[in-house]
Design a protein around this nucleic acid. Structure first.
Lengths: 80, 80
DNA sequence: ACAGAAATTTAAGTCAAGGTTAAATTTCAA
DNA sequence: TTGAAATTTAACCTTGACTTAAATTTCTGT
């Protein structure tokens, strides 16, 4: 999966604990952990917005794309 | 919804037509149109990756967060 | 003004997965 | 070593990202 979650860097920079963030944005620790470790296949904008609000960041600070020349060929059949 | 889709700017910059992008990444024109106009509430990373691949961009170039001081208060009850 | 392409919208439907709670296990820091 | 933080698994619920189809609207060129 060429989409990588860069959550830890933000957390560290803000000096916050995941548990605290989860409580602040009203999401379960479970889900935040799954997101954090790249185990989710998508995200709702409502959740993304809350994360950005709490961490005072942009979506691009949480989710990045690792370019891969094979992505375009693989667009038709199933990827990830 | 504080998440805003900045798709049109990219499209124009690349000089591509939405129909073409839809065909390239294997997504319906319908869905791309809905995404483009901010009518979807989330996105799968597989789709996001394909968009990034075709448009040669980062997630942050497609999705931005408009900071709103009310977001944190609204985190508990329903937003969007 | 006309014609065709591109884009939007609505509707109806499928189903993957984002989300939850609960509980056990593992990791981390004082 | 002891408790808090984090991870993982499982079972479940519900949303909504997707699809196709078809009608309508907007855009573009001639």
């Amino acid at each position: 999966m060429p989409i990588r979650i860069t959550f830890d860097a933000l957390l560290a920079r803000k000096g916050m604990k995941a548990k605290h963030v989860a409580a602040l944005i009203g999401v379960s620790e479970t889900q935040l952990s799954l997101f954090r470790s790249g185990k989710v296949r998508g995200i709702r904008f409502s959740t993304l917005a809350k994360l950005c609000a709490v961490l005072e960041c942009q979506p691009g600070d949480l989710v990045v794309y690792d370019a891969d020349p094979l992505d375009l060929q693989a667009a038709d059949d199933g990827d990830d």
